[in-house]
Amino acid sequence: MLNYTAKLSISAKFIPIATVCGLLFATGESAQAATFALNEDTTVDTFTECVNDGIALKVGKNPVDESGWQYAIDSFNDGVDGLQVGGDGNPYEIYSLALKETKDSLFVAINGNMSLTGVDGTSAEDGNIGWGDLFFNFTDQDFTTANNQGDLFGVRFAGTNDSLVPNLGLYGNVTAISTTDINSGFESLAEYNQRVNDFCQGAGCGPSLGDLPADTSYFDQSQSLNTISSGEFLTSLMYLSESELLAAGYDLNRFDGEHTIAFKFDKSGICDRGYCTSVPEPSAGLGLAALGLMVGVSQLRKRYSA
Protein backbone atom coordinates (compact mmCIF):
# COMPACT_ATOMS: atom_id res chain seq x y z
CA MET A 1 0.00 0.00 0.00
CA LEU A 2 1.28 3.46 -0.88
CA ASN A 3 1.93 5.73 2.05
CA TYR A 4 0.63 9.31 2.19
CA THR A 5 3.92 10.83 0.97
CA ALA A 6 4.05 8.53 -2.05
CA LYS A 7 0.49 9.40 -2.96
CA LEU A 8 1.30 13.08 -2.84
CA SER A 9 4.33 12.51 -5.06
CA ILE A 10 2.21 10.76 -7.68
CA SER A 11 -0.37 13.52 -7.50
CA ALA A 12 2.32 16.16 -7.94
CA LYS A 13 3.47 14.41 -11.09
CA PHE A 14 0.15 13.97 -12.83
CA ILE A 15 -2.36 16.56 -11.66
CA PRO A 16 -0.51 19.64 -13.02
CA ILE A 17 0.11 17.88 -16.33
CA ALA A 18 -3.55 17.00 -16.68
CA THR A 19 -4.49 20.55 -15.71
CA VAL A 20 -2.26 22.07 -18.38
CA CYS A 21 -3.53 19.64 -21.01
CA GLY A 22 -7.05 20.59 -20.10
CA LEU A 23 -6.22 24.27 -20.41
CA LEU A 24 -4.62 23.77 -23.79
CA PHE A 25 -7.60 21.89 -25.15
CA ALA A 26 -10.02 24.38 -23.57
CA THR A 27 -8.75 27.17 -25.81
CA GLY A 28 -9.86 25.29 -28.88
CA GLU A 29 -6.88 26.68 -30.79
CA SER A 30 -3.50 25.36 -31.81
CA ALA A 31 -0.59 26.03 -29.47
CA GLN A 32 2.03 28.62 -30.28
CA ALA A 33 5.55 28.95 -28.85
CA ALA A 34 6.57 31.14 -25.93
CA THR A 35 10.23 31.77 -25.22
CA PHE A 36 12.14 31.89 -21.95
CA ALA A 37 15.61 33.38 -21.55
CA LEU A 38 16.09 32.50 -17.88
CA ASN A 39 17.06 28.85 -17.39
CA GLU A 40 18.76 26.81 -14.69
CA ASP A 41 22.21 27.63 -16.13
CA THR A 42 21.66 31.42 -15.95
CA THR A 43 23.79 33.48 -13.58
CA VAL A 44 23.42 37.26 -13.25
CA ASP A 45 25.79 39.52 -11.31
CA THR A 46 26.76 43.10 -10.58
CA PHE A 47 29.45 44.79 -8.49
CA THR A 48 30.24 48.32 -7.48
CA GLU A 49 32.97 50.07 -9.47
CA CYS A 50 35.43 49.52 -6.65
CA VAL A 51 34.23 45.93 -5.95
CA ASN A 52 33.43 46.99 -2.38
CA ASP A 53 30.43 44.68 -2.64
CA GLY A 54 28.74 42.53 -5.24
CA ILE A 55 25.88 40.13 -5.73
CA ALA A 56 25.01 37.23 -8.03
CA LEU A 57 21.68 35.52 -8.71
CA LYS A 58 21.64 31.89 -9.81
CA VAL A 59 18.35 31.09 -11.54
CA GLY A 60 16.53 28.26 -9.76
CA LYS A 61 18.51 28.69 -6.54
CA ASN A 62 15.49 30.25 -4.84
CA PRO A 63 11.77 29.81 -5.54
CA VAL A 64 9.87 32.13 -7.83
CA ASP A 65 7.14 33.98 -5.93
CA GLU A 66 3.50 34.26 -6.99
CA SER A 67 4.27 37.43 -8.97
CA GLY A 68 7.10 35.81 -10.93
CA TRP A 69 10.04 37.36 -9.06
CA GLN A 70 13.08 35.48 -7.81
CA TYR A 71 15.39 37.13 -5.28
CA ALA A 72 19.07 36.72 -4.43
CA ILE A 73 19.84 38.04 -0.94
CA ASP A 74 23.31 39.29 -0.07
CA SER A 75 24.85 39.63 3.37
CA PHE A 76 23.72 42.88 4.98
CA ASN A 77 27.14 43.25 6.56
CA ASP A 78 29.84 42.93 3.88
CA GLY A 79 30.02 46.30 2.13
CA VAL A 80 33.47 47.88 2.43
CA ASP A 81 34.00 51.61 3.02
CA GLY A 82 37.71 52.02 3.76
CA LEU A 83 38.32 50.06 6.95
CA GLN A 84 34.62 49.98 7.81
CA VAL A 85 32.81 46.80 6.84
CA GLY A 86 29.03 46.79 6.97
CA GLY A 87 27.29 49.05 9.44
CA ASP A 88 24.34 51.40 9.13
CA GLY A 89 24.63 53.87 6.30
CA ASN A 90 27.51 52.11 4.56
CA PRO A 91 27.05 53.50 1.02
CA TYR A 92 28.41 50.38 -0.69
CA GLU A 93 26.16 47.80 0.98
CA ILE A 94 24.09 45.69 -1.46
CA TYR A 95 21.05 43.85 -0.14
CA SER A 96 19.35 42.05 -3.01
CA LEU A 97 19.10 41.39 -6.73
CA ALA A 98 15.74 40.33 -8.20
CA LEU A 99 14.63 39.16 -11.65
CA LYS A 100 11.30 38.63 -13.35
CA GLU A 101 10.62 37.39 -16.87
CA THR A 102 7.49 38.09 -18.89
CA LYS A 103 6.60 37.14 -22.43
CA ASP A 104 8.52 40.08 -23.89
CA SER A 105 10.77 41.53 -21.18
CA LEU A 106 13.23 40.95 -18.38
CA PHE A 107 12.73 42.98 -15.20
CA VAL A 108 15.63 43.76 -12.82
CA ALA A 109 15.56 45.30 -9.33
CA ILE A 110 18.67 45.99 -7.24
CA ASN A 111 18.33 47.07 -3.62
CA GLY A 112 21.26 48.74 -1.86
CA ASN A 113 22.47 51.88 -0.12
CA MET A 114 24.02 53.43 -3.23
CA SER A 115 21.95 55.59 -5.56
CA LEU A 116 21.93 55.23 -9.33
CA THR A 117 24.41 58.14 -9.61
CA GLY A 118 26.88 56.68 -7.11
CA VAL A 119 28.89 58.35 -4.35
CA ASP A 120 30.61 61.70 -4.97
CA GLY A 121 33.67 63.08 -3.17
CA THR A 122 35.59 59.83 -3.29
CA SER A 123 39.21 59.01 -4.07
CA ALA A 124 38.27 57.72 -7.54
CA GLU A 125 39.93 59.48 -10.48
CA ASP A 126 36.65 61.19 -11.42
CA GLY A 127 35.64 61.72 -7.79
CA ASN A 128 32.69 59.33 -8.12
CA ILE A 129 32.33 55.65 -7.25
CA GLY A 130 29.17 54.10 -8.65
CA TRP A 131 27.71 50.90 -9.94
CA GLY A 132 29.48 48.61 -12.35
CA ASP A 133 27.44 46.93 -15.08
CA LEU A 134 25.06 43.98 -14.87
CA PHE A 135 26.12 40.73 -16.56
CA PHE A 136 23.95 37.86 -17.82
CA ASN A 137 25.50 34.46 -18.46
CA PHE A 138 22.96 32.08 -20.01
CA THR A 139 25.49 29.27 -20.51
CA ASP A 140 26.74 26.56 -18.17
CA GLN A 141 30.25 28.03 -18.33
CA ASP A 142 31.96 30.01 -15.61
CA PHE A 143 32.22 33.78 -15.98
CA THR A 144 35.80 33.81 -17.26
CA THR A 145 35.12 31.22 -19.96
CA ALA A 146 31.94 32.94 -21.12
CA ASN A 147 33.78 36.27 -21.13
CA ASN A 148 36.66 34.91 -23.20
CA GLN A 149 34.26 33.38 -25.73
CA GLY A 150 32.06 36.47 -26.05
CA ASP A 151 29.03 34.64 -24.64
CA LEU A 152 28.10 37.24 -22.02
CA PHE A 153 25.33 39.81 -22.21
CA GLY A 154 25.68 43.04 -20.26
CA VAL A 155 23.48 45.93 -19.21
CA ARG A 156 24.84 49.39 -18.62
CA PHE A 157 22.24 50.84 -16.28
CA ALA A 158 24.17 53.65 -14.51
CA GLY A 159 25.00 56.62 -16.69
CA THR A 160 27.72 57.99 -14.39
CA ASN A 161 29.85 54.85 -14.29
CA ASP A 162 33.09 54.10 -16.15
CA SER A 163 31.68 51.58 -18.61
CA LEU A 164 33.42 51.62 -21.99
CA VAL A 165 30.19 51.32 -23.97
CA PRO A 166 28.49 54.64 -24.72
CA ASN A 167 24.77 54.05 -24.20
CA LEU A 168 22.52 52.73 -21.47
CA GLY A 169 20.95 49.41 -22.40
CA LEU A 170 21.51 45.75 -23.21
CA TYR A 171 24.60 44.56 -25.10
CA GLY A 172 25.48 41.18 -26.63
CA ASN A 173 28.86 39.58 -27.43
CA VAL A 174 30.15 41.29 -24.32
CA THR A 175 33.63 41.27 -22.86
CA ALA A 176 34.28 42.57 -19.34
CA ILE A 177 37.10 44.51 -17.72
CA SER A 178 37.92 45.82 -14.26
CA THR A 179 37.62 49.51 -13.41
CA THR A 180 38.77 49.16 -9.81
CA ASP A 181 42.19 50.71 -10.52
CA ILE A 182 40.62 54.11 -11.29
CA ASN A 183 38.08 53.80 -8.48
CA SER A 184 40.40 53.19 -5.53
CA GLY A 185 39.10 49.63 -5.35
CA PHE A 186 40.23 46.06 -4.89
CA GLU A 187 42.35 44.46 -7.59
CA SER A 188 40.76 41.07 -6.98
CA LEU A 189 37.82 39.38 -5.34
CA ALA A 190 40.29 37.61 -3.06
CA GLU A 191 41.42 40.99 -1.69
CA TYR A 192 37.82 42.05 -1.10
CA ASN A 193 37.09 38.79 0.73
CA GLN A 194 40.16 39.23 2.90
CA ARG A 195 39.23 42.79 3.86
CA VAL A 196 35.76 41.71 4.91
CA ASN A 197 37.10 38.79 6.92
CA ASP A 198 39.63 41.02 8.66
CA PHE A 199 37.31 43.88 9.65
CA CYS A 200 33.67 42.79 9.72
CA GLN A 201 31.88 42.57 13.03
CA GLY A 202 28.46 41.52 14.25
CA ALA A 203 25.73 39.27 12.92
CA GLY A 204 26.15 37.82 9.44
CA CYS A 205 29.83 38.72 9.44
CA GLY A 206 31.68 37.48 6.37
CA PRO A 207 31.80 38.11 2.63
CA SER A 208 28.91 36.98 0.44
CA LEU A 209 27.89 37.19 -3.21
CA GLY A 210 24.19 36.48 -2.82
CA ASP A 211 23.43 33.07 -4.32
CA LEU A 212 27.14 32.26 -4.68
CA PRO A 213 29.74 31.87 -1.93
CA ALA A 214 32.35 34.62 -1.78
CA ASP A 215 35.13 32.22 -2.79
CA THR A 216 33.14 30.71 -5.67
CA SER A 217 35.03 29.25 -8.61
CA TYR A 218 32.44 30.81 -10.94
CA PHE A 219 34.60 33.96 -10.82
CA ASP A 220 38.37 34.09 -11.15
CA GLN A 221 39.27 35.16 -7.61
CA SER A 222 42.42 36.90 -8.87
CA GLN A 223 40.34 39.31 -10.98
CA SER A 224 37.65 41.94 -10.38
CA LEU A 225 35.76 42.15 -13.68
CA ASN A 226 32.87 44.55 -13.16
CA THR A 227 32.32 46.66 -16.29
CA ILE A 228 31.56 46.18 -19.99
CA SER A 229 34.63 46.66 -22.16
CA SER A 230 32.97 46.03 -25.52
CA GLY A 231 29.75 44.69 -26.95
CA GLU A 232 27.03 45.02 -29.55
CA PHE A 233 24.19 47.32 -28.56
CA LEU A 234 20.86 45.47 -28.67
CA THR A 235 18.18 47.55 -26.99
CA SER A 236 17.60 50.39 -24.57
CA LEU A 237 16.21 50.00 -21.07
CA MET A 238 13.26 51.56 -19.27
CA TYR A 239 13.58 52.61 -15.63
CA LEU A 240 10.71 51.62 -13.37
CA SER A 241 9.08 53.79 -10.71
CA GLU A 242 7.97 52.46 -7.33
CA SER A 243 4.38 52.32 -8.53
CA GLU A 244 5.41 50.36 -11.62
CA LEU A 245 7.41 47.96 -9.46
CA LEU A 246 4.42 47.46 -7.18
CA ALA A 247 2.22 46.82 -10.20
CA ALA A 248 4.75 44.18 -11.31
CA GLY A 249 4.46 42.47 -7.92
CA TYR A 250 7.88 43.41 -6.51
CA ASP A 251 8.09 43.42 -2.70
CA LEU A 252 9.28 46.96 -1.91
CA ASN A 253 9.22 46.38 1.85
CA ARG A 254 11.36 43.26 1.95
CA PHE A 255 14.82 44.91 2.08
CA ASP A 256 16.36 47.81 3.99
CA GLY A 257 18.56 49.39 1.32
CA GLU A 258 18.11 53.12 0.84
CA HIS A 259 17.61 52.77 -2.93
CA THR A 260 15.91 50.30 -5.27
CA ILE A 261 17.15 50.65 -8.84
CA ALA A 262 14.75 48.97 -11.24
CA PHE A 263 14.42 48.69 -14.99
CA LYS A 264 13.22 46.39 -17.76
CA PHE A 265 14.32 45.70 -21.33
CA ASP A 266 13.13 43.75 -24.34
CA LYS A 267 14.57 40.23 -24.40
CA SER A 268 14.21 39.61 -28.15
CA GLY A 269 17.90 40.36 -28.74
CA ILE A 270 18.78 37.50 -26.38
CA CYS A 271 16.32 35.11 -28.01
CA ASP A 272 17.48 36.04 -31.51
CA ARG A 273 20.94 34.79 -30.57
CA GLY A 274 19.66 31.36 -29.59
CA TYR A 275 19.70 31.69 -25.80
CA CYS A 276 15.95 31.24 -25.28
CA THR A 277 14.00 28.02 -24.89
CA SER A 278 10.57 27.63 -26.50
CA VAL A 279 7.58 25.96 -24.83
CA PRO A 280 3.98 25.61 -26.08
CA GLU A 281 1.58 28.37 -25.14
CA PRO A 282 -2.14 28.71 -25.79
CA SER A 283 -2.70 31.28 -28.50
CA ALA A 284 -5.68 32.85 -26.77
CA GLY A 285 -7.74 32.91 -23.61
CA LEU A 286 -5.34 31.74 -20.92
CA GLY A 287 -2.05 33.33 -21.94
CA LEU A 288 0.61 33.53 -19.27
CA ALA A 289 -1.43 31.63 -16.68
CA ALA A 290 -1.13 28.42 -18.67
CA LEU A 291 2.46 29.34 -19.53
CA GLY A 292 3.32 29.44 -15.84
CA LEU A 293 1.82 25.99 -15.37
CA MET A 294 3.93 24.67 -18.23
CA VAL A 295 7.04 25.90 -16.46
CA GLY A 296 5.87 24.20 -13.28
CA VAL A 297 5.40 20.93 -15.14
CA SER A 298 8.91 21.17 -16.55
CA GLN A 299 10.35 21.64 -13.06
CA LEU A 300 8.34 18.71 -11.69
CA ARG A 301 9.52 16.43 -14.47
CA LYS A 302 13.13 17.29 -13.68
CA ARG A 303 12.55 16.70 -9.98
CA TYR A 304 10.96 13.27 -10.37
CA SER A 305 13.28 12.06 -13.10
CA ALA A 306 16.31 12.59 -10.84
Rank of each mutant, 00 (worst) to 15 (best):
L106T: 01
D256H: 04
V295L: 14
E242M: 08
N3K: 14
G210I: 13
D181Q: 07
D211V: 02
L286D: 00
N113S: 06
F153E: 01
I17A: 13
F186I: 04
D198F: 00
V196Q: 03
Y239F: 15
Y171S: 10
P207S: 14
A306P: 05
N148T: 04
L225H: 10
L245I: 11
P166G: 10
D215Q: 15
T277G: 00
E66S: 13
V85N: 03
G112P: 03
E191P: 01
F265S: 02
P213A: 12
C50P: 09
A247W: 07
D78A: 10
D104A: 05
A146E: 05
D251L: 00
F14D: 15
F107T: 08
L293G: 13
G172S: 12
E66R: 14
G206R: 01
G285K: 00
A34F: 04
G231S: 08
L240M: 05
D266F: 01
E125G: 09
R156L: 09
T27E: 13
R301I: 13
N128L: 11
L225D: 11
D162Q: 07
N62G: 14
G210E: 14
M1H: 13
G68R: 00
T43A: 05
A284K: 08
D272G: 10
N39T: 11
G132A: 10
N137Q: 06
L234I: 03
D78N: 13
N253E: 15
K100N: 05
S241W: 13
I177L: 08
D41Q: 15
N111A: 08
I129T: 07
N173V: 03
A37V: 14
G54A: 10
G89V: 00
A98S: 14
D53N: 15
G82S: 10
S163N: 07
A37N: 13
L300K: 09
R303E: 14
N183S: 07
G22N: 10
A33V: 11
G54R: 02
I228M: 15
D53V: 08
S305L: 11
D133F: 02
A18G: 09
P166N: 12
G292C: 13
L212Y: 06
T180A: 09
N113F: 01
L234H: 04
V85P: 01
C271D: 08
E29T: 06
E49N: 04
T260V: 09
G154A: 02
S230G: 02
G269A: 12
V80D: 03
G82H: 07
F47R: 00
N226Y: 08
E242C: 05
I261C: 00
Q221Y: 15
